[in-house]
Design a protein around this nucleic acid. Sequence first.
DNA 1: CCCTGATTCGC
DNA 2: GCGAATCAGG
Length: 171
Amino acid sequence: MNWTDERVELLRKLWAEGLSASQIAAQLGGVSRNAVIGKVHRLKLSGRGRTTAAPARQKKASSAPASRPARAASPARATAPTVGATALQVQFDAEPAARQHLRAVDNNVVVPISRRLDLTQLTERTCKWPNGDPLSEDFHFCGNEAGENGPYCAYHARLAFQPASERRRVR
DNA sequence: CCCTGATTCGC
DNA sequence: GCGAATCAGG
């Protein structure tokens, strides 16, 4: 996954709105929170406008790290990063602007604001993640743009393939 | 342990 | 430039 202009633009917007790096990573899809943080720094966005400057982390000793194992040196444990887990957690202290894009459900789970399409409006390129009680009038599908390879938008694809055991426990 | 952003440095 | 590993902290 590369940083297209669209993805960078979305990153800038969500970061400015106060979403955490892991939440942004989940929305973008295909990147880790580390990738988001790294990109944020390269774009020089890290300040997030806040006045109180960060404590300015100490520089690591420039000589031998020695203890850090080479990344590719341990193929035995190839666990994928659990990006997106935190997106399940509501950030009640989030900036108000952030809530424009996240809708709380059951006071605990957040989902991106969807297009709320009904069955007849779905196409091959709309997210088919269902929301709400299927028997209720409010039932709808997410309807956001789905990835070119799957039935869900990046956000819901993350949820769909996240093992239930790894989802954050909801109170 | 859950999470947050910050930094380094091999690639 | 990218991002995993790591660090420092809440």
